[in-house]
Nucleic acid binder design. Structure first.
Length: 606
RNA sequence: GGGGACGUAGUUCAGUUGGUUAGAACGCUGCCCUGUCACGGCAGAGGCCGCGGGUUCGAGUCCCGUCGUCCCCGCCA
């Protein structure tokens, strides 16, 4: 028999009562987290988002209540009216904040019952993720998820407050907008009123925020959902939240100061202190030293050890003499068994023709002098793990590794980026040993001076590395035609512990330069007009210099929560196939709906 | 699009060289229990071994396919 809530009001949250409340009456409402039935004495742990309080029902003092308590099952929703009582010293529970007291129940109302859930929020072992996502509402009751979502809230509030207090206006931009292909695939929304035409969901509010600068709002921000129809990863969801901002008249440093400011505020809200300014590193150095454009500074850099080897050494090893030879060093890993070394091989992902030597001992045996130099150059201690990555020695193999055109191939990306991936994989593999991945160790970094263009091997053309509205360096303007690959962009990424948090740039505000970029990208004026005409026209009406950045809120919270997937900090995420298992989306729609939209589906859904 | 891992009671897992009746823990149901807090004790229910095909006298176990989840590459201006 269920009870009504009636006029009953909650007096405290379930995690609120303390010893100082002893003697007071209290009304708690929440879920039955656990029931311990000792016969004539029943304990109920009542739970809400704030915590747990123990409720006592004694048959001797209140038989009717005791009988009702016997009917309770896990996840029933109840209200308990009672008196806060100090526990006997020997029955205090030191594991919970409310452990010094308990609520002696006078009245119990069962507000709702619950079917036996597929798993209990209080369980210590997690069910598999498929089940968690299908029953997300139960999964979200778990303490960890409650904390993650609370953390997300605190972080986003802190950022909003910081930006608002620094004269940024929060301004909304449309979700139903125009498809401007290039870049990620768009999610499309069919128009009923204009059959055959589609809106696109924004991959970012890029052009709108630039137009807001043209419109004179000076400083804009938005914590905004963005959509990209691309394959998922642990750190990539098809819809995700960005902290998007744009400002007028900035140098890159002005944007960085703002970001450092709101990140400090966000981390403070999460209980961490970080110290701006963040270090800065050019893209070239990032590739050279870390084999990545998002270096994880918690591990030592890779070292070019080409000079340690003679040409003969390299020939014997079957590696190229003209490509770099680099050493990866992971501290304190110690001696590896044969099997452990063999297990490393599959972790190596070769970009282009890079080759891994996971057995440094063998190199030490064959070439003791070279090996000694490698140790010296890389600063390796005896218990450090050393792996060597070099380019394959087969002739004619390394013309344009990784799709990088020869003229920008200053760093022989294949070897460096392969080594960079392996370095990170090793860091994760041996995290327990090297101890460099401690919680609360936050290494921020600005990566700057990205190349303006990347060679697109498939399209046989230059493509914008960032986006086509990014301003080139002022000093590189004249290379736009002659050496596109050598043009640096006024673009920057903010990186934390090997994760790209955000990406931004100073934009092009002059129409003449914008035209040159489109032409360098091989786009005719007509093409540019048809895609971005509205924007190019806006540029002509007095556009101030401007620039900005966008940071992934989900990723920030993920790192702060110590989670290894965005799904842990997004309440209702999608699976790797972009499915929402709880609501079961996407689904086919009715013939009638399709007809109204003037759409025919070729391969009818299952 | 490609590579890899996983799929067995409600849940988390075990299941030997293919062998007769598929186990454990937690959860669930019933009974007992007045200081538990991962309460305890006794009894019990609960299985399309993801799905389809094949090999075999015999398949949870071997093979092929398929579906689902996860990780990675490609992709993600």
């Amino acid at each position: 028999m269920l009870d009504f809530l009636g006029d009953l009001q909650r007096t405290h949250m379930c995690g609120a009562l303390r010893a100082s409340d002893a003697g007071k009456p209290a009304v708690l409402m929440g879920w039955v987290n656990r029931r311990r039935d000792l016969g004539n004495l029943i304990f109920i742990d009542i739970r809400d988002r704030s915590g747990i309080t123990q409720v006592v029902c004694n048959k001797e003092t209140n038989a009717g209540l005791h009988e009702k308590a016997g009917e309770l099952r896990n996840e029933f929703v109840i209200a308990v009216l009672g008196t806060v009582k100090l526990r006997d010293p020997n029955t205090v529970n030191k594991n919970i904040p409310t452990g010094e007291i308990e609520l002696v129940a006078d009245e119990l109302r069962i507000l709702n019952e619950a079917k036996q859930p597929p798993f209990l929020p209080g369980d210590s072992v997690l069910p598999n993720e498929e089940l968690r996502l299908q029953y997300r509402y139960i999964d979200l009751r778990r303490e960890t998820m409650q904390r993650n979502i609370e953390l997300r809230h605190k972080v986003s509030i802190a950022i909003r407050q910081y930006l608002a207090s620094h004269n940024f206006f929060e301004i909304e931009t449309p979700f139903m907008t125009r498809s401007t292909p290039e870049g990620a695939r768009d999610y499309l929304v069919p128009s009923r009123v204009q059959q055959g035409a589609f809106y696109a969901l924004p991959q970012s509010p890029q052009l709108f925020k630039q137009i807001l600068m043209i419109s004179g709002f000076d400083r804009y921000f938005q914590i905004v959902r963005c959509f990209r129809d691309e394959d998922l990863r642990a750190d990539r969801q098809p819809e995700f939240t960005q902290i998007d901002l744009e400002m007028s008249y900035p140098q890159p440093e002005r944007v960085w100061e703002v970001v450092e400011g709101f990140l400090s505020a966000a981390f403070k809200a999460a209980g961490y202190e970080i110290k701006p300014p963040f270090p800065r590193m050019s893209y070239d150095d990032a590739i050279r030293l870390y084999g990545s454009d998002k270096p994880d500074l918690r591990l030592p850099p890779i070292t070019d050890v080409r000079d340690a080897f003679t040409g003969e050494n390299l020939q014997t090893l079957g590696v190229s003499e003209s490509l770099p030879v680099v050493a990866i060093r992971i501290p304190k890993v110690g001696e590896l068994s044969r099997k452990e070394r063999d297990d490393l091989k599959p972790l190596f992902i070769s970009k282009g023709s890079a080759k891994l030597f996971e057995d440094f001992k063998r190199i030490e045996k064959s070439f003791p002098e070279a090996a000694a130099k490698v140790r010296e150059k890389s600063g390796a201690a005896l218990d450090d793990l050393i792996l060597i990555v070099a380019g394959d020695g087969k002739p004619g193999q390394h013309k344009s590794e990784g799709g990088v055109k020869p003229e920008v191939k200053q760093h022989d990306h294949a070897v460096h980026t392969s080594a960079g991936l392996m370095r990170v994989a090793m860091g994760q593999r041996f995290a327990a040993k090297h101890g460099a991945f401690a919680a609360g160790d936050f290494r921020f970094l600005w990566v700057t001076d990205f190349p303006m263009f990347e060679w697109d091997e498939d399209g046989k053309r230059w493509a914008a590395a960032h986006h086509p509205f990014t301003s080139p360096h002022e000093r590189d303007m004249e290379k736009l035609q002659s050496h596109p690959g050598a043009v640096r962009a006024l673009a920057y990424d903010v990186v934390l512990n090997g994760t790209e948090l955000g990406s931004g740039s100073i934009r092009i505000h002059r129409q003449d330069i914008q035209k040159k970029i489109f032409s360098a990208l091989g786009m005719t004026e007509a093409e540019a007009r048809s895609r971005f005409g509205f924007f190019l026209e806006a540029l002509e009406y007095g556009t101030p210099p401007h620039g900005g950045i966008a940071l992934g809120l989900d990723r920030i919270v993920m790192i702060l929560a110590g989670a290894d997937s965005l799904r842990e900090v997004i309440p209702f995420p999608k699976t790797a196939r972009a499915v929402d298992l709880m609501v079961d989306a996407p689904t086919p729609v009715s013939e009638a709906q399709l007809k109204e939209l003037g759409i025919q589906v070729k391969n009818g859904a299952k």
